[in-house]
Structures are given as structure tokens and as C-alpha cells.
Design a protein around this nucleic acid. Structure first.
Length: 754
DNA sequence: AGTCAGCGAGTTTTT
DNA sequence: CTCGCTGACT
């Protein structure tokens, strides 16, 4: 097969029976899947109609779709490429009635879920202080992931008081969603499995349809997804799963790594193909990745290799603070762009979003264009959700969450008290709130609000009329913005915030129009369902000519020539909770995350730590990440730094201390007041008085000047040719006897006058 | 209804 | 520190 290596071809050519492809990072996984689809069609004459490829994210699905289209040619559009959730939505849109739901169901996002739970807690008189909503949300989600109904849940945890409370809430929650004709994200899969279980004919229909099934990122599947796949594949057993146990980083949201580890137990006749040749990273980067990941126990045995050259060593930098770290990263980026790179080839990765702030600050001051991929979605914005709620309510009048959201937005004098009355009445009559509001005179105690409710109903009916007349979604959207007074309210506000909101609404309008253009006969339902299932992460693109900033998690599946991973400190990465956790695997999951991060880099990898970092308002001294020390020193570019680090690690103490901090080049670690709590779990919360010293230290001029002879730990001796004050630091240019001219920052270069 | 002080909490995230 | 939520007050 052209352009594929041996293992890749083997995987593609396996047609019948279960197949497990263990695809290491950068081993051409998507390539194999798409080529296999082509092979099935072209060599085996399999009807593309019978092929299903499942991914996790829309981004992955779109990418695969595109590549299938490109490689396969004729019939490609018939291959079903989809995420788990959109596959289930499509099935449910067809058969939801069998489960007693309307086909015009709504999809509840996490915020809707939370509100539903909140209301339930109120009704069941459960104190959210004692039992927070979050806890119930997690329990319910976990139950659904395990395919446990409220009954099943109750049976399993009968002895546990808190779980029984959860069961009670779970039961009420399920009932509530049903009356709202809504599915939450977990339901989409849960209910599909339920549908298949209760209606073998429907299952068989889909089994016959999907005779060849491929699942990408199989290590991220949870139990119910496993069940779904198992059911679908049961008849023909042509199941091909692709994944990498080393890249399983979503345990915290239910991913079950044993799905992939035990695939061969589930399917004893499975063929296993390992893809170990990496086409992405240079040798040194790959070796660093291997060195880190091999500290994990219980992995599938494999080791990535490459034919690429070793490339540069992995750069490691230890800074005094997160500011200095960010400064150093910014200056390095500036240097890279000056020399060889484009902004879009560069990514800065971190463990938590909170770390992005300082980076942002420094990038701004260096005038470096960047984009932060924050976790918040475009469609999560208040104003978007408001308008969407109108649309959702029109589509599904039983959607009480949508109704509650907009019943008084903009203000129309229907307050919380009235809403509670409506809800109580609707509950009691077992009708939707909207239905109850059609006869407000029947609802006790409403008084003058009844008239306002009627006005509101009239407004909604005018929208319904628009919809009935077959007007476009964008037309409806405009009417909603105008007739409700929503837009006017924002315009009159004249604040920065309201301007941003208006801009967002405009952007939303663009997206509606885009949908209309792409899907000529797309209706409101399809639009809403599509919106419910997309996220901003799908929009990560490296075309924009800017540096990308994102968490290590969001970087999965991406690659960049230049990758910076910052905050390489114990208690940051690996996170404090992973270090404290009883669960051994918590640390291993962090290590997998590190592996994912490292393997994003193609040409050059930069790791950095800060000795001291502000966390939750206090200074924290954290040891250098164990992951850094797991990388053999010979792969790292700053051997001197590493030597000191290793030594300190052996002494098992954090790096800097308040007293010795930076006063002289190498004197960290003496008189360490934290020595006695060097073990985990104790974070020094009393801050050492070192903010000042930091500033003082940074203002001290270098001991050398232009023309002086200096010695560098790695480059040897040289002559200072230039010394320029730049911002907080000096940029020093040295002509080294052995390796020529280097430009560096005085505080990092650690030059000694000789 | 709207604002503001005071309190508490504070990974990772898709769908 | 900083955000978000609650609750009290206007």
C-alpha cells in the first residue's frame, strides 16, 4: 500500500474480525484509519454505507471526514464519520419516541443540568451547602456512565447514606428531564444503549448498517461507550479500535483505560498491531518522551522510535518566579521568530488555565501575537445562551430550563416568586410550564403577573408563527433580538461589556448564516443539536499566525514544531492533588499527560520551571517536576542546571529559600526553613519575605561590562561584545571562543567575570 | 429589581 | 489573588 509502512499496511489490510491498533503518538493513526477505509472500499468492495468511524471530538471527526474525502474519492460521503454523541443524536432523533420522548428533544448542557439539580434540591429540601450540586452531578454522571438506572444505582449502593440521597436526586432528575423532553450529554449514549436493549430490531438494523466499525481514541472511552460499541459490533464483529494507553488522560471524566488494556480479553481472536514508528518528533524529543512514560507501570509494551535525526536537545530552564519564566519564554519566542520560526508554529502548554495569565502579560509586553484557548465555549456566553433559549423553547415547548432562562429576560415583571408558582402548578398538573402559562388564570396566586404572562405567551406565539411560515433561522433570530427588546437593552447600556455582548450576538448571527449556507434545508432542530455538540476546541487552528496557548489536555491530537511546557514543578505538574492522591494511577495519569505534551513537539521542546510561584494568593516553593528529572540529563540542553537540580532532589528539599534566594549565583538550598516538610502535602503557606529580594536582586547590574572576559557554564570563555538593558533584564551578547556569538539574558546566562 | 459587600473556593474537559 | 455566588439592603 502506497505511503504506508509495514505495520500500517498490516492494520489497513485486516478486514474481518476484531482489530486493536496500538498507535503511539505521531505514528500516523488517522492516516491508518482513513487508508483502511479506502482499503475496505477499494480492495474489498465494501459498500461505504456499511462503514462507521467514531471519534471523540468534532474536530477529529471533521478532520477524518476531510481526509476520507480526499483519499477515498467516490462514495466517501457515504461513510459515516461521527462523534459518539452525534451518532447517538441521529439515532435518537429517529427513535426517541420508542423511549417515550419526543423527537424534538433538547440537549441539556452542564449549566442546564446544574439548574435542574438546583431546583430539585430545593424541592427535596436538601441543603446544597451540605450536599453540593456538583456532587450530585458527578454521581449521576458516573451512574449513567456505568449504565446504572436510579434503581440499579440504589441497589448497588444500598448501604451508603449519601449515595441514597444521590439516588433520590438522580430519580427526580431523570423524571425532570423526561418531562422537559431533554437528554443530557450522558443520556445521549445511555438512552441509545437502552433503546438497543429494549428494541433488538432497531439494534439489528444498525448492526446491519454498520458492519465495519472503527473507534478512534479508544483509550478515552468510558463504560457506556464500550457497551454501545460492543452492541453495535456484536453481529459482524468487524470492530477496529485505535488508541494509545499512554495517552489516556481523561480518567477524571470517566474514561476507562481498561477498555483498551482488556480489548484482547473481550475479543480473544483480536489481531493486535502496534504502530511504533513516530513521524512527528526529532530523536531527542522522542527519547525524552519514552524516558518519562516508561516510569509508568502496567502499560502495553511499546516504544516509539524514529528515523528522524536527533535534533536539538530538550531545553530546560529554571527561573526564579513565574514572571521570569514567562519572560524567558517570551524572549525565546521572539528569538525563534527572528531566526527561523513563525508564530503559528509555536505553542505554550500548561497544566491549568490559571497559568496563562502571566504568559499573556509577558507576550503582550513582547508584542507577540497569541491566542489562548480557554475552556469557555462561545456558546456558553450569557447572551448567546439567552437567545438560544428562545430558540430552544420554540423548538421544544416542554423545555422548562429554556423557559426559566428567558421568562424574565429582558425584564418583563415575572419574578422568581411567580416562576415558582408556575413551576409548582405545572408539576402538580404534570404539564410543562409553558402549557401552564397558557392559562395563567388557573395558576393560584399570580395576581397582576397573569397579564404579563399572557403578553409573554403572545410574544412567543408570534415567533412560532414565523417558524411555521417557514422563515429562515436567521430571520427568526433577528425577530427575537428585536421583538424581545434584548438587543435594544444592550445598545442602551453603552458599556464595554454590552458592546462585547453585541459583538458576540453578531458573531452568532454569522454562524447561523453559515449553517444555513452549508445545510440548505437545515431546520431549527438540526441547528440546535449541532450547536449543542460543538465546542471551541474544535476551532483550534494553527493557520492564524499566532502563538497558541492552551492546557496540556487541549493540546492532545495537535502538533507544533516548537513547544514550550511551563510550570514543570511538583504540585503544579504533576498536580498537588495527584501527588496527594491515594490512587497510584493519579500520578501515572499526570505522567501520561506529560508524555502527551512532550510528543506534541516536532522540532524543539522547551521545558521550564519556576522556583517560586504565586498560588491562591501566596508564594509557593515547589520542587522541580519529577518528570523533568525522569529525562536523562544527556537529553537536556542545560546540563549545569540539571546537575544542581539532581543534587538538590537527592537532598529532598525544595529549591529556593527566602534567605539564600538569588543573592549569589549558586547558593540555593542552605538554611532551608521548609526542609522539615519537604515531603508532600505541606505547602508552605506563610510566605517568605522574598518578593522584595526578588526585586532588589533583579536591579543589580551584572558584574561585567562590554569588553569584559566572562565564563559561561556551557559555552566556556568569551568576550562581552554588547550589554543592553531591556525591560527587567540585560541582554548580553558574548563572543565565545569555542562557539561563536551568542545572545542571552544576563539573569539566565549566569556569566562569571574572569 | 438591582447593587454591593462578604464569603468561599480554587485541576484537567468533551459532548 | 480573583472570580463567582449569596444574601442583605436599598
Amino acid at each position: 500500500m502506497d505511503g504506508l509502512n509495514n505495520m500500517q499496511s498490516t492494520a489497513c489490510a485486516h478486514v474481518d474480525g476484531p482489530l486493536l491498533i496500538l498507535a503511539g503518538a505521531g505514528s500516523g493513526k488517522t492516516r491508518v484509519i482513513t487508508h483502511r477505509i479506502a482499503y475496505l472500499m477499494e480492495h474489498e468492495g465494501i459498500n461505504p454505507y456499511h462503514i462507521l468511524a467514531i471519534t471523540f471530538t468534532n474536530k477529529a471527526a471533521n478532520e477524518m471526514r476531510e481526509r476520507v474525502n480526499r483519499i477515498v474519492g467516490k462514495g466517501a460521503e457515504q461513510v459515516w464519520v461521527s462523534t459518539f454523541h452525534s451518532l447517538c443524536v441521529r439515532i435518537l432523533m429517529r427513535f426517541a419516541d420508542r423511549l417515550g420522548y419526543g423527537k424534538n428533544f433538547t440537549i441539556y448542557d452542564t449549566a442546564d443540568q446544574k439548574n435542574a439539580i438546583k431546583n430539585i434540591l430545593k424541592e427535596l429540601q436538601i441543603d446544597p451547602k451540605q450536599y453540593p450540586e456538583k456532587m450530585f452531578m458527578a454521581e449521576i454522571s458516573r451512574a449513567k456512565e456505568q449504565y446504572l438506572s436510579p434503581d440499579g444505582f440504589e441497589r448497588r449502593y444500598a448501604a451508603d447514606y449519601v449515595k441514597m440521597k444521590a439516588a433520590e436526586v438522580y430519580r427526580a432528575y431523570v423524571k425532570r428531564l423526561k418531562t422537559c423532553n431533554a437528554f443530557d450529554f450522558d443520556d445521549l449514549i445511555y438512552k441509545t444503549v437502552e433503546l438497543f436493549e429494549h428494541y433488538p430490531d432497531i439494534l439489528e438494523y444498525y448492526q446491519d448498517r454498520f458492519r465495519y466499525i472503527m473507534v478512534d481514541e479508544y483509550q478515552d472511552t468510558n463504560h457506556i461507550q464500550f457497551l454501545l460499541v460492543k452492541m453495535l459490533a456484536k453481529k459482524y464483529r468487524n470492530l477496529c479500535v485505535v488508541g494509545d494507553d499512554d495517552q489516556s488522560i481523561y480518567k477524571f471524566r470517566g474514561a476507562n483505560i481498561t477498555n483498551i488494556l482488556n480489548f484482547e480479553k473481550e475479543y480473544p481472536d483480536a489481531m493486535v498491531v502496534k504502530l511504533e514508528q513516530n513521524y512527528r518528533s526529532c530523536g531527542n524529543i522522542l527519547e525524552a518522551a519514552n524516558a518519562v512514560i516508561c516510569h509508568n507501570a502496567g502499560r502495553k509494551d511499546k516504544k516509539l522510535w524514529t528515523e528522524k535525526e536527533k535534533g536539538e536537545k530538550v531545553s530546560y530552564t529554571l527561573s526564579e518566579s513565574e514572571y521570569e519564566e514567562a519572560e524567558q519564554i517570551a524572549s525565546e519566542i521572539a528569538k525563534l521568530v527572528r531566526q527561523e520560526a513563525e508564530y503559528r508554529e509555536i505553542a505554550v502548554l500548561y497544566r491549568t488555565h490559571a497559568q496563562s495569565r502571566v504568559l499573556e502579560e509577558k507576550l503582550v509586553s513582547w508584542n507577540i501575537p497569541y491566542k489562548i484557548y480557554s475552556g469557555t465555549n462561545f456558546y456558553d456566553r450569557l447572551e448567546i445562551k439567552d437567545v438560544m433559549a428562545y430558540m430552544k423553547l420554540l423548538y421544544n415547548p416542554e423545555d422548562n430550563a429554556a423557559l426559566r432562562r428567558i421568562i424574565n429576560v429582558p425584564k418583563r415583571g415575572i419574578g422568581d416568586a411567580s416562576i415558582d408558582k408556575i413551576a409548582a402548578f405545572a408539576n402538580q398538573q404534570e404539564i410543562s410550564m409553558l402549557a401552564a402559562m397558557r392559562r395563567p388564570e388557573n395558576i393560584p396566586g399570580l395576581g397582576r403577573t397573569a397579564a404579563k404572562i399572557s403578553d409573554f405567551i403572545q410574544l412567543l406565539d408570534s415567533f412560532r408563527k414565523i417558524l411555521k411560515e417557514g422563515e429562515s433561522i436567521s430571520f427568526l433570530y433577528d425577530r427575537i433580538l428585536e421583538d424581545t427588546g434584548y438587543e435594544e437593552e444592550l445598545i442602551n447600556e453603552h458599556s464595554d461589556e454590552s458592546m462585547t455582548r453585541l459583538e458576540n450576538l453578531d458573531e452568532f448571527r454569522n454562524r447561523i448564516i453559515q449553517f444555513e449556507e452549508e445545510r440548505e434545508n437545515g431546520n431549527l432542530g438540526e441547528f440546535l443539536q449541532e450547536i449543542a455538540l460543538v465546542s471551541e476546541a474544535d476551532a483550534i487552528n494553527t493557520e492564524d499566525g499566532v502563538v497558541s496557548l492552551m492546557t496540556l489536555h487541549s493540546a492532545k491530537g495537535l502538533e507544533f514544531p516548537y513547544v514550550f511546557i511551563c510550570g514543570m514543578e511538583d504540585r503544579i505538574f504533576p498536580s498537588a492533588q495527584a501527588l496527594n492522591s491515594e490512587d497510584e494511577d493519579a500520578l501515572e495519569e499526570e505522567r501520561r499527560l506529560c508524555y502527551v505534551g512532550i510528543t506534541r513537539a516536532m522540532k524543539k521542546l522547551y521545558l521550564s520551571s519556576a522556583k517560586c510561584r504565586m498560588m491562591h494568593g501566596s508564594h509557593n516553593l515547589n520542587p522541580v517536576s519529577r518528570f523533568v528529572t525522569e529525562i536523562p540529563p544527556m537529553l537536556l540542553s542545560d546540563a549545569g542546571e540539571l546537575g544542581r537540580m539532581k543534587k538538590r532532589q537527592q537532598e529532598s528539599m525544595p529549591f529556593a529559600t527566602s534567605q539564600s534566594y538569588g543573592l549569589k549565583g549558586g547558593g540555593y538550598g542552605q538554611n532551608n526553613p521548609y526542609k522539615k516538610h519537604a515531603s508532600y502535602g505541606i505547602t508552605p503557606s506563610t510566605k517568605p519575605a522574598f518578593g522584595k529580594e526578588f526585586v532588589v536582586n533583579r536591579e543589580i547590574n551584572p558584574e561585567y561590562g562590554e569588553g569584559d572576559r566572562v565564563r559561561h557554564i556551557k559555552f566556556g570563555d568569551g568576550t562581552v561584545t554588547q550589554l543592553v538593558q531591556g525591560g527587567r533584564d540585560y541582554e548580553v551578547t558574548v563572543n565565545f571562543d569555542r562557539c561563536g556569538v551568542k545572545k542571552m539574558f544576563a539573569s539566565f546566562a549566569k556569566l562569571k567575570k574572569i
